[in-house]
């Protein structure tokens, strides 16, 4: 089947990126990477793109395909061509383009370096560690990451704040924080809870949705946050906010906005972080902090809290 490929190209020497169309004879089983190789080996050898393993494990070939990030090498053409008639291929978004489909990964690697990407064992001399299956499982998902950059490409926070640590590096960070052998957990969590750290994630779930390896970066972020709170790293707006909801549900079973905002904002105010406009607006629209009605069955909620607490203490 002849299929139209529309490829977003750019040449650093020419000013504007442009679309170029190619027609490729697609056979059953062909992937987008196969088509790109076919184009570059025939029609147009000047087309640049990264590739290596062609088996979805090296992370070289993540591209924006029909609008969303995918690994070119594991994306079958026929099913998508049938749906949309043509296949568009663009470089990953949220990344600077070098040439055609090749983007600059330097910021990606720099973020990795920021999370001190190696184990700092609690005991350097220990020969063999006993690692329980559940400990292995705790970091197994994050370890599936192939550093393809798809998550960072769709991360909504990164889009507005390029300094945000981002989903990929967060998954990497969890891989160490969650490792039973790690010796500098708290220090790591303190850094990760700082500016541009894990609390800046807006939970848009793009990363987990589009990760081609099911590494679930958002889950790693949630675990990092929970671990930070557990380790007492709570002097930041994110943790305060969480703790106030934990407290609110424990008291009344639901979100007591007035009390919660008060707590989080009180903290922000002490840091001089709330702008005037927000203060006004929040005051304008909040319910009067009268006595907030609790849900029915608060006893049950309290019992659940204490059961969870008990289990946590037992470890």
């Amino acid at each position: 089947m002849k299929t139209k490929f529309k490829i977003r190209r750019s040449d650093p020497l020419k000013a504007e990126p442009y679309w170029q169309a190619y027609s490729v004879e697609v056979k059953e089983g062909m992937t987008v990477l196969d088509a790109l190789l076919k184009i570059s080996e025939g029609d147009d050898p000047t087309l640049s793109f990264r590739r290596s393993c062609r088996s979805a494990i090296c992370g070289s070939c993540a591209l924006t395909i029909n609008g969303f990030p995918k690994l070119a090498c594991s994306t079958q053409i026929l099913p998508i061509a049938k749906e949309t008639r043509e296949v568009t291929v663009e470089p990953l978004s949220n990344h600077q383009v070098i040439k055609d489909l090749v983007v600059d990964f330097t910021p990606f690697w720099n973020k990795m370096e920021k999370v001190t990407p190696f184990l700092l064992p609690a005991d350097e001399t220990r020969k063999e560690w006993v690692i329980k299956k559940e400990d292995e499982k705790a970091i197994d998902r994050a370890q599936k990451c192939i550093m393809c950059g798809s998550c960072n490409a769709v991360c909504n926070s990164l889009d507005v704040d390029p300094n945000f640590i981002g989903p990929a590096a967060s998954a990497k960070a969890w891989r160490f924080v969650g490792d039973v052998r790690e010796g500098h957990r708290k220090k790591r969590l303190e850094r990760l809870s700082g500016e541009h750290g894990v609390w800046d994630c807006v939970r848009c779930v793009h990363c987990t949705e589009y990760c081609p390896k099911d590494a679930a970066p958002l889950e790693a972020i949630e675990r990092l946050r929970a671990k930070a709170i557990e380790e007492g790293v709570v002097e930041n707006p994110g943790a305060k906010h969480v703790l106030s909801l934990v407290d609110s549900i424990k008291r009344v079973g639901r979100l007591d906005e007035a009390a919660m905002t008060f707590k989080t904002l009180g903290f922000l105010r002490s840091l001089g972080m709330i702008p005037f406009g927000l203060k006004m607006e929040i005051h304008g629209k909040l319910p009067h902090p009268i006595i907030f009605l609790a849900i029915e069955g608060m006893k049950e909620v309290k019992k659940i809290y204490s059961a969870v607490e008990k289990r946590r203490k037992k470890g």
Binding site: R203, E222, R223, R225, A226, I229, G238, H241, V242, L243, L245, V246, S248, I249, G253, R254, L255, I295, E296, G297, E300, V301, I304, Y305, A307, V308, R311, R312
Partner: peptide
Amino acid sequence: MPGANCCGAGLITDYNYELSLALNAR
């Protein structure tokens, strides 16, 4: 559902995943 509690809005997951599951299971 007058007895329904807050689902946790994702924030309880940031605190303790089991608590989040338990509250939702309720």
